[in-house]
């Protein structure tokens, strides 16, 4: 616990100083939303059906930017080696990085989400909070698998490009479940939402556990 909070605190101080991670995620997320507005401008369909997809494309790709920044910071000056020298288990290190990645993604999303509401002429009501809760779950799913995949991709020459190649296929269940759950909230027909929340929760539990166990293989020489 102590080492986890140390890692989170350290990442926050660095982010406050260079502002690289959150700014890039935020800009990218907003741009995706804007581009989708143009793409769907002439299509006459209900906003509630299209909007969730645009939101999760924005979130999942922005998350990849954040993960790349987060790992670049640890690779610079071989800091990751310094972390591996510390008397904490590889699993704890993994959880610490998941937590700080998750926090940064949530901060960026907390700004993208109100813009999403405004762009799509939705209301700031209970539904907004429900979507925020789904965003929490989906983002934790993305952070749990993205943290280990970004350490894998960091070993290749084309790290920034490799991460989406590895990550997008594996996050298909998160994206499907989050989009469907968001859509059910926005359309008001929430009969099937519990199964989507179960898929998200299951994904998070399975990947947090699996990554916790095999993280040492991903970081050690």
């Amino acid at each position: 616990m102590k080492s986890m909070s140390a890692i989170i605190f350290k990442d926050i101080v660095i982010e406050m100083r260079n502002k690289e991670s959150i700014t890039s995620m935020l800009m990218f997320g907003v741009l995706v939303l804007v581009v989708f507005q143009f793409a769907f401008e002439t299509i006459n369909v209900e906003r509630g059906l299209l909007a969730p997809g645009t939101l999760w494309v924005a979130f999942s790709f922005a998350a990849i930017l954040g993960l790349n920044r987060s790992l670049a910071m640890e690779i610079d000056n071989d800091c990751l080696q310094g972390l591996l020298l510390a008397p904490i288990s590889r699993g704890e290190l993994y959880l610490g990085k998941v937590a700080s990645n998750f926090i940064f993604m949530m901060i960026a999303e907390a700004i993208v989400l109100p813009l999403f509401v405004v762009f799509n002429n939705l209301d700031f009501n209970l539904k907004f909070l429900e979507v925020a809760a789904i965003a929490c779950l989906g983002t934790l799913g993305i952070a749990s698998i993205g943290t280990i995949l970004s350490t894998i991709s960091a070993n290749t020459r084309i790290k920034e490009v490799m991460l989406p190649v590895l990550q997008i296929p594996l996050t298909v269940p998160v994206i499907i479940a989050s989009v469907e759950a968001t859509r059910e909230v926005l359309t008001g027909d929430t009969r099937g939402i519990s199964s989507w929340l179960y898929v998200l929760a299951g994904f998070i539990i399975v990947y947090l556990t699996a990554s916790y166990l095999v993280f040492e293989f991903a970081v050690e020489e």
């Binding site: 140390a6 605190f9 350290k10 101080v13 660095i14 100083r17 000056n77 310094g82 510390a86």
Partner: peptide, 21 residues
């Protein structure tokens, strides 16, 4: 390689590693 974070000051770097240990 010194494994220090370039964006942190010496005190912040040492505080971080000190907490880990």
């Amino acid at each position: 390689n010194t494994y220090l974070y370039r964006d942190l000051t010496p005190i912040e770097n040492l505080r971080f590693f000190g907490r880990l240990y």
